[in-house]
Design a protein around this nucleic acid. Structure first.
Length: 422
RNA sequence: GCCUGAGUAGUGUAGUCUGGCAACAUAUGGGACUGUGGAUCCUUUGUGCCGGGUUCAAAUCCCGGCUCGGGCCCCA
C-alpha cells in the first residue's frame, strides 16, 4: 500500500465542493475590486527566495537540484514569485497594477492542524500606489474576501513599522537591541520587553510608556506618545485618515490599531496588518499583509508595493469551525433505463439535456429500478427519469420528483423544460 | 527539532488494563425482485499502521519507526 506523503492531503468530492465554493466567492470579490488573476510556476530558482529571506530559509523549504544542476525550490509563498514576474515582464503596465492569485505553496514544516506541507494561498499585490485610499481599499478587500465567504467572527489588526522604527530611533536603541526586542514584541511578551529595555539603560518611566504604546489601540494615547517626532506624527496622521476611510467608505469598524505587529523581515515597511479568526486558537491567523520593498531587490525600478496573502485552508477550517453550512451541489436529473434495450435511448436523452445546461447522470450498472433509485438518492438528485417501453409507446418518460416522490408521465419533448423548472 | 496522546474493514466503533474468538454497525457489489423496493431480508467484499522482541500463543505486553491530533520551536 502506498501512503500519502507527510503533511499533504487528498480532497474528497465533498471537500472539493467546499473549496470551489470558497474559491469562486474569493475570485468574484477580487474581480469586483478590479483585480486580475495571474499564475506563476510552482517552482522557481532557489535564489529568488534566498535573496528575499536569507540562506537560512533553505532548511524550511523544498529545495533541490534538477538534472541540469540548477538550484530550484518549490515556492514557499507567492509574493516573491509575483514580484519576480512583475520586474521581469510587467513593469511597463499602467499603474496602479492590481494582481491576484491562487496557488499551492510548500514548506518543510512539522504538520499540525491548519498547517500542512502543501497548502493553498490566495492573495494579491497592488503595485504603483501608496495613497491612504489605496491602503484602505486593500484592507477592505482582505476583510471582505473573508466576510463574503461567510465568516462572521474575524478581527483586523493594523500596525505600522515606520512609526515603530521612528520610536526605536527616538529611544536610541541600536540594531542589535532591536533584533533582540522584535521577537519578544511579536510574541506579545511585554513583561520581557520591559525587562530588556531596562537592561538597555532606558528609564523605567520611558520603558513603561513604550510598552503601553505597543499595547494600546487608543488613537489619542498613541498621538500623545509620538508627539514631537515628525516622521511618526506624519505617518500616524496618514494611518488615521486611512482608518477613517475604512469606516466611512467601507463600513468596516471592527479593526484595532496594534503597533506590536512586526515582521521578521527587513523589506516590510510602513503599513502592516493581519486578520485573524479567534475561533481557531493557535493557528488563528488567516491573512497577513502590508507594504514592502522587494522590487529594487529584484532589480526593478522602485515603486510602491503592498499586498496580502490569505491562508486558504485556514479560511475553510474557520468556516467549518463556525459551522457554516456550505451549499450542496445538486444533480438535476438521473436517468434510469428500465431494461437493457432502453440504454441507448437513455444515453441519448441524457445527452440532449446536457447540451442544454442540465446536469445529468445515467445509471451505468444495468441494475434494477429499486437499486438505481437508491443510488440516485445518495447522489442527491432533484429528479429521476425512468425510460421504459411503456413510456416510449407515447414518446414519454416517467419523471419522478425525488423530494416529494410524485411521478408523472412527460413527453420527451417536454422533459427539458420540466427538469429545468424543478 | 522537542514534549504529549492516539492509530482495529471504505466510514464509525467494541475488544487492549487482565495475552488464546478479530466483533458490531454502516458502506460496496450481487440476489430475493423481468418497472417504484429511497424500504426489508439474504449474501459477497473488506480490518489489527509498519518492523523487531518477549511468549507455547500478541490487536493486547516491550522496543524502534511511520502517520495523525494537542502543545512548543519556527512561521517568508
Amino acid at each position: 500500500m502506498f501512503q500519502i506523503p507527510r503533511g499533504t492531503r487528498d480532497f474528497t468530492p465533498e471537500e472539493m465542493e467546499k473549496r470551489r465554493y470558497v474559491e469562486s466567492h474569493m475570485r468574484s470579490t477580487f474581480t469586483s475590486f478590479g483585480y486580475r488573476e495571474i499564475q506563476t510556476p510552482m517552482f522557481e530558482n532557489l535564489e529568488l527566495f534566498t535573496a528575499k529571506s536569507g540562506e537560512g530559509i533553505i532548511e524550511e523549504i523544498y529545495a533541490f537540484k534538477d538534472k541540469g544542476g540548477r538550484d530550484l525550490a518549490l515556492r514557499p509563498e507567492l509574493t516573491a514569485p509575483v514580484m519576480r514576474f512583475y520586474v521581469e515582464k510587467l513593469q511597463m503596465e499602467p499603474k496602479p497594477l492590481k494582481l491576484f492569485y491562487f496557488g499551492s505553496c510548500f514548506r518543510y514544516d512539522r504538520p499540525q492542524k491548519g498547517r500542512y506541507r502543501e497548502f493553498q494561498q490566495a492573495g494579491c499585490e497592488l503595485i504603483g500606489t501608496n495613497t491612504t485610499e489605496a491602503y484602505a481599499e486593500l484592507i477592505a478587500l482582505a476583510y471582505l474576501l473573508l466576510k463574503n465567504i461567510g465568516l462572521t467572527n474575524i478581527n483586523v489588526n493594523i500596525g505600522n513599522l515606520t512609526i515603530l522604527s521612528a520610536v526605536f530611533d527616538r529611544l536610541g536603541l541600536s540594531k542589535d537591541q532591536r533584533k533582540h526586542l522584535i521577537p519578544l514584541i511579536d510574541k506579545s511578551l511585554f513583561d520581557d520587553v520591559q525587562t530588556v529595555l531596562s537592561e538597555c539603560g532606558l528609564e523605567p518611566k520611558k520603558a513603561q510608556d513604550f510598552v503601553t504604546f505597543l499595547q494600546t489601540s487608543d488613537k489619542e494615547k498613541i498621538k500623545k506618545f509620538v508627539k514631537g517626532d515628525p516622521v511618526a506624527e506624519n505617518e500616524f496622521t496618514n494611518l488615521e485618515k486611512m482608518l477613517d476611510l475604512l469606516g466611512s467608505s467601507f463600513q468596516i469598524k471592527n479593526y484595532q490599531i496594534k503597533l506590536s505587529i512586526v515582521r521578521g523581515l527587513d523589506y516590510y515597511k510602513g503599513l502592516v496588518f493581519e486578520i485573524e479568526a479567534p475561533i481557531l486558537g493557535a493557528e488563528k491567523q488567516l491573512c497577513g499583509g502590508g507594504a514592502y520593498e522587494l522590487v529594487p531587490l529584484f532589480g526593478g525600478t522602485d515603486v510602491p508595493t503592498v499586498g496580502f496573502a490569505i491562508g486558504f485552508d485556514r479560511a475553510i477550517l474557520a468556516l467549518e469551525t463556525e459551522k457554516f453550512s456550505f451549499p450542496k451541489k445538486q444533480l438535476d436529473a438521473f436517468v434510469i433505463p428500465v431494461n437493457e434495450e432502453m440504454i441507448q435511448k437513455s444515453l441519448q436523452l441524457a445527452q440532449i439535456l446536457r447540451q442544454n445546461n442540465v446536469t445529468v447522470d445515467v445509471d451505468l450498472l444495468r441494475r434494477g429500478v429499486g437499486k438505481a433509485l437508491k443510488y440516485a438518492n445518495t447522489l442527491n438528485v432533484k429528479t429521476v427519469l425512468l425510460v421504459g417501453p411503456k413510456e416510449l409507446e407515447t414518446d414519454s418518460v416517467t419523471l419522478r420528483d425525488m423530494k416529494t416522490g410524485n411521478q408523472e408521465l412527460v413527453k420527451i419533448s417536454d422533459v427539458l423544460s420540466k427538469v429545468k423548472n424543478m
